[in-house]
Amino acid sequence: MLRLLNIELHKLRYNRAAKVISIIYFVLITFIALISSIEFNFGDFHFRVADQGIFNFPYIWHFNTYIAAILKLFLAIVIVSMVSNEYSYRTLKQNLIDGLSKKEFILSKFFTVLLFAAVSTIFIFFVSLILGLLFSDYKEIGIIFSGLQYIGAYFLKLVAFFSFCLFLGILVKRSAFALGFLIIWQIVEWLAYGLMKWQIFKDSEIADHVSRIFPLNAMANLIKEPFSRLGAIQSAATQLGENFSKTYEVGFLNMLIVLIWTGLFMYWSYAILKRRDL
């Protein structure tokens, strides 16, 4: 396993574009901390984001993983290009001739995906921990480490998303087209949901149940939007007579669906590569 990871990292190490994007990605994650410094003044009214409770434990785990997950698109570019480059440089062929098996090739990419996801997760864990310790109103150990399921969900979400990118890279062979395909796929999921919801299965919950198994939707459902959970917004809503009864938990079924998709993407990648003449 280390050998395969080593091979892939050797390819990435000297790739300037991949290095720059990865660095930007991690810097941007750190910039979540900057949200804390957003302040404004309306006359006498002084507003500071950090005081609104977004950095309170355990809410911070939810909020930070949600925001950081948006940035995964940066690494998606790296992942897609690290596959499509192998096609455009014809180095995939050369790798195989040099004695790498097709399985090892896919595994070396997948291990790299795992590594990227793991490093991101560790990174977001420490950024959140430090921010929380600075700004949280509650600092008891028990509270700090409650809500860590969001960190786990974040890891899972990244692995699944990057596996999808990897699969698209192998399927389409061109990075620009693969990223385009990703966007088109998201639109297809929305359209399919819309069609089911308002045309085919009107007035029923079938559309919601079916759309839960769509890959991108399933990944999105892992960490639900945290904004409506915020104290300030909830109290405002209550005043307007609106009641939120939403669950923000990381669903077990959701995790299972995402894991199955990850497995399928890797299996399909291998199957395509195995069948293809290079």
């Binding site: 390819k11 790739n15 014809r90 195989l96 001739i97 040099d98 004695g99």
Partner: peptide
Amino acid sequence: LKKVGAIIEHPNFYP
């Protein structure tokens, strides 16, 4: 193939 050396058509390396 680890005991073989082969070159096919184009030289393929990471530019």
